[in-house]
Design a protein around this nucleic acid. Sequence first.
RNA 1: GCCUGGGUAGCUUAGCGGUAAAGCGCGUCCUUGGUAAGGACGAGACCCCGGAUUCAAAUUCCGGCCUAGGCUCCA
Length: 642
Amino acid sequence: MSTVTVTLPDGSTLSMDEGSTVEDVAYEIGPGLGSDTVAGVVDGDLVDKHTPLTGDVELVIVTPQSDEYLDVLRHSAAHVFAQALQREFPEATLTIGPWTDDGFYYDITGVDLDEDDLEDIEAEAERIIEADYDIVREEVPRQGAFDRYDDNRFKQEILETEAADEDPVSFYQQDDFYDLCQGPHIESTGEIGGFALLEISASYWRGDEDNETLTRVYGTAFPTKDDLEEYLEMRQRAQERDHRKIGQEMDLFSIDDTTGPGLPLYEPNGKKILNELSDYVGQLNRDAGYDEIETPHVFRTELWKKSGHYDNYVDDMFLLDVNDEEYGLKPMNCPGHATIFDQSSWSYRDLPVRYFEDGKVYRKEQRGELSGLSRTWAFTIDDGHLFVRPDQIEQEVLATVDIILDTLDTFNLDYTVQLATRPEKSVGGDEIWEKAEDQLKSVLDEQEIDYEVEEGDGAFYGPKIDFAFEDALGRNWDGPTVQLDFNMPERFDLTYTGEDNEDHRPVMIHRALYGSYERFFMVLTEHYNGKFPPWLAPEQIRILPVSDDNIPYCEQLQEALGDYRVEIEDRSWTVAKKIQVAHDDRVPYMLIIGDDEEDAGTISVRDRMEREEKAIDIDEFADHLETEVAQQRTAVTFLAGR
RNA sequence: GCCUGGGUAGCUUAGCGGUAAAGCGCGUCCUUGGUAAGGACGAGACCCCGGAUUCAAAUUCCGGCCUAGGCUCCA
């Protein structure tokens, strides 16, 4: 019998008989590990512990202490759900039920479920867990598998595709329930300590919207009840920091039924933050050699035909009929910017030319996609376009990435980076694409940025670097971006005169430091949980008079702090209530002013971190705040070191 | 766009065939307070919009609009 070499995570190797299973290897290492083994990771794939090894492999043994154990547990939890479902609704048809990052789902059909049903199914699942059924792998001849699923075309399809080469086919059985499945699974249903069903939703078979709609039930499972509780609390906390909730509480923005979907209305508090954000990037852009321009919200469709948007993007555009002529709200700012570039003749010495604009754009996204500020119909891009010579691409991309990193650092944000490369449908030659992608890569490497390459995910007109953020609910959203564009300069026939006195084609770079203000606003609101840094906070200071008699002195203080956004709490409440409400409103600094302060000509400062100090000189506070705001510090620091 | 929930006062929600409720907010008054919600009274609702069933609809049914989650999209 031939042998195979198994390489373990520590680099050591074992020689095993060919056909030995993952579990055999574990027992070879030690009986304790053997009995603990739940599954294995063979060359990166999570497999059942009974999987035979047929060649030289890298192997990780999965035990209840492994990270992968949760996946295995949840996979089994999906089966427990399916069994409970079939007990309650025998007519339900099962399709697929994998684990996910934070639980599992099962796609089913043939039954309508509502939230109450979910509770019943959950109760049934608890009984199945309580019963602690053994979960047993079973090998069934191919024909037998088809017989089992003679009324389930989804399972049949899986047998004909994913499991096309398998005979026998593996099933997993617990009690009288079985499911076509490759595994791996835990030993018995009782290993699941905490089980919960979370949501009913929908999906398409095979993720294709032309296919049948399925009902998807999301759930999660943990080794212990405590782990589950902790997860549910975390979920609850995440919902608490949802920007839509905070936006409502802090009167930042609203989206009104009457004015329309996906069309955010910024209230005064929100606009104050937007203005600070705009001033911040405006300064960065000017410092980086950009010229500010402005374009209107609507253009004749002639422009969109010229830019190619009319052919490729018209379904997402808002079109208007004006005197029998067609106009379109701009879904992008670039054609306007390219037109401005085209108003002058340029020498190679003039390049790069850099334009920027806080440009409002309108995109008629699918209705079901609209969500708070993260996906809207109207949004403002801090949009910049560079017109560069081909030899300037790298330096300009580098400079742009540099400013993006500065910006993200100012807000102390976490992000991921993707390099999106040439899609199947694209314009431009092989050489220019290859070169451009290399240039983007070398910029990312030079900046020592971790990034993922998303093959074929670039725009048709050029490759791009995207920076993405995660929202409170763990969803990813693209933010800052740098995109190369070989197409627009062609379409607009943009040229500059080279050293050789010939016309040359510039390359266009699209870039945004925030992405859109809306989405960035969402990210910041959730990142700070509404506790905006003092430089951004809509209300930076609230003065709380102890009694109404102190109001005149408070007004003097307000005037002395005229450089800041200061409000006086003049409602006739107790001091305790004024403090409570100021905390709820997330105001960075409260000045508590009673007779003591008024007589001494001082202030008491309390911050939203609940620190407080009395008898402070107002100038000292104002000086500190000036620094804190000027440096865009992300925390309230006046009382930190005192 | 698709599926499943949901839409009741400015906000958060209860009510689910028979006189529209509560808390917060708002107004007036009392209280002038010293560190995380003092008290009383009051105003405020086309119960999302159409249609149907019924003696009677916020409540049931149908259609639409909006919204949440997911799916699918996302130059």
